[in-house]
Simulated scan of single mutants.
Amino acid sequence: MVENFDRYWNNVHGVLAIASLLDPRFKLKLPQYFFPLIYGEDKGLVEVKKVRNLCEEIFLEYHVKVGEKRSKEIKAICNSEFNHVDEMDSLDGFFSWNSESTDGIEKFELDCYLEEKTLPGSR
């Protein structure tokens, strides 16, 4: 029975950790507190990193999909408003320049969310 539970828990704990991460009262603090108690200090820290990495992968996948959709929407709008190829080239040049002109240290919403303080809990 314990073996079956362990196998089941290994599949489910990531989902539960992500669910707690989405709760603004807990974020990543809940796994940071409980995983070392459950797994021991070293393995607990590894498990917390796995949860963080999983969340980042999911967020980046979403970010790419939304970015592609927005890019297509922008191009559709631009194509309908501008009839001259030169104007489109200029606009594409602007978008390219604008994305390169940032300092390269872009924080994603996930990072900002996780760095904010957690909301106070209630009993």
Rank of each mutant, 00 (worst) to 15 (best):
P24F: 02
G14L: 14
S101W: 11
G14H: 12
N98C: 09
N83M: 13
L16F: 04
Y113H: 05
P36R: 01
D23I: 03
K29Q: 13
G121V: 09
K27W: 07
T118F: 01
Q32N: 06
R52V: 04
F35M: 04
K50G: 04
Y33S: 00
A19L: 14
G40R: 02
L37V: 00
P36V: 00
F108P: 00
F5P: 02
S90W: 07
R123D: 14
S80A: 11
W9I: 01
T102H: 13
I18G: 02
N10C: 05
G67D: 13
E57S: 08
H13Q: 10
T118H: 02
K65D: 15
D23W: 02
I77L: 01
Y33C: 03
E81W: 03
N4D: 14
E47T: 07
L22S: 04
D111G: 02
L60N: 07
S80P: 02
V66L: 12
N10P: 00
D111A: 09
F5Y: 13
S20L: 07
D103F: 12
L45N: 08
E87I: 05
T118I: 09
S71I: 01
F82E: 11
V2L: 12
D23N: 09
E115T: 05
K65S: 09
W97P: 04
R123K: 14
K27P: 04
E68K: 08
R52H: 15
G121C: 10
S96R: 10
M88C: 09
L110G: 01
E56K: 08
K43G: 02
R7W: 13
E116L: 13
L28C: 06
R25V: 00
A17S: 12
H63A: 13
E116T: 11
Y33D: 02
D6C: 13
N98I: 03
R123Q: 14
C78R: 02
V46P: 02
A17C: 10
F59Q: 08
V66C: 09
K75N: 12
L30A: 10
E56C: 07
N53L: 15
N53W: 14
K50T: 11
F34E: 00
S20F: 05
R52G: 06
Y39V: 00
I38D: 04
H13L: 05
A19S: 06
K65P: 01
R52C: 09
H63D: 15
L60D: 09
D23M: 04
P36S: 01
T102E: 14
N11Q: 11
M88A: 07
S99M: 07
E87G: 05
V12A: 04
